[in-house]
């Protein structure tokens, strides 16, 4: 366990010391700041507009950051050859990969926390109220979504190369909801056999929109917090896909010649 945590610590240090996370936070902050200064709306309208845009920017930026960080973990270790001294120590390949995953998740959470500070500072400045239970659920589900994205990026980085993994991971994240909407649309006009295939496709692709409660936070006046059993089901849903992606990644890495 200690080895796993030491490797995770390395990933977190990298995320904290490299400037790209801060660059993403600064650019996003500027965008959020621009929204916050918009005076087109009356107070209530501005609150909704701010919440919607800020949460969307934060969600997209964090997910893309995690895709980049997760995708580069293994290819960079190969490229700089640091994988050799690491795995020459008494560290199993499983511990190594788990450490990397925990580190990526810690880095993603760190990035998210930076955004939260910016977001809450904006709320404070604009005197916008955010429902604490709904917001906590939003954060929790975002982290579950990040886990799916991180494990998928790991898997892709072992199947392809760094650039392809980042591209495919980003496309998956940005386009999966469009893809799933298209499948739902086709479903209405399909016969039984095609409907079956479409259903299989829908279930085999993780639906990232399920982890996004930003719309509910925007319209918090009409949305109560999500029931606990739904959160439980979503947790299981995230863990199922994450475990599957991680397992495939591990199987690819387990006997790979270095």
């Amino acid at each position: 366990m200690r080895s796993t945590l030491l490797i995770a610590w390395t990933v977190l240090i990298e995320a904290i010391r490299r400037r790209e996370v801060y660059a993403i936070v600064v650019i996003s902050t500027l965008l959020i700041g621009a929204v916050a200064t918009t005076r087109f709306f009356e107070l209530q309208g501005l609150g909704k507009f701010y919440r919607e845009i800020a949460l969307q920017i934060m969600t997209i930026a964090t997910n893309l950051t995690v895709i980049i960080i997760a995708s580069r973990q293994l290819p960079r270790e190969f490229e700089s050859r640091t994988i050799y001294p690491l795995l020459a120590k008494p560290v199993s390949r499983l511990s190594f990969m788990l450490g990397k995953l925990i580190g990526v998740m810690a880095a993603g959470t760190f990035c998210f926390l930076l955004f939260m500070l910016v977001f809450l500072a904006g709320c404070q400045y604009l005197k916008i109220f955010v429902s604490p239970p709904l917001f906590a659920q939003f954060l929790f589900l975002q982290i579950l979504g990040l886990l799916v994205v991180a494990t998928l990026s790991f898997m892709l980085s072992l199947m392809t190369n760094l650039d392809a993994a980042i591209t495919l991971g980003s496309l998956f994240y940005l386009l999966s909801s469009i893809f799933l909407s298209a499948l739902s649309y086709l479903y209405q006009f399909s016969d039984t056999a095609v409907k079956f295939i479409l259903r299989v496709m829908v279930f085999s692709v993780p639906q990232m929109s399920l982890f996004d409660l930003s719309e509910k936070v925007v319209h918090q006046e009409v949305w109560p917090p999500v029931p606990a059993f739904v959160i439980g089901q979503l947790t299981a849903y995230s863990l199922a896909f994450s475990s599957l992606f991680f397992l495939v990644a591990f199987l690819l890495f387990r006997r790979r010649p270095l």
């Binding site: 080895s3 610590w9 240090i13 990298e14 010391r17 050859r81 050799y84 001294p85 690491l86």
Partner: peptide, 25 residues
């Protein structure tokens, strides 16, 4: 083990790197 030509983590300090490898050992 000393591998052939390795570029150790550029974002780490020498001491931190040795803490990492020593800890792993």
């Amino acid at each position: 083990y000393l591998p052939e030509v390795t570029l150790y983590y550029p974002f780490m300090k020498a001491k931190e790197l040795l803490f990492l490898y020593g800890g792993l050992q």
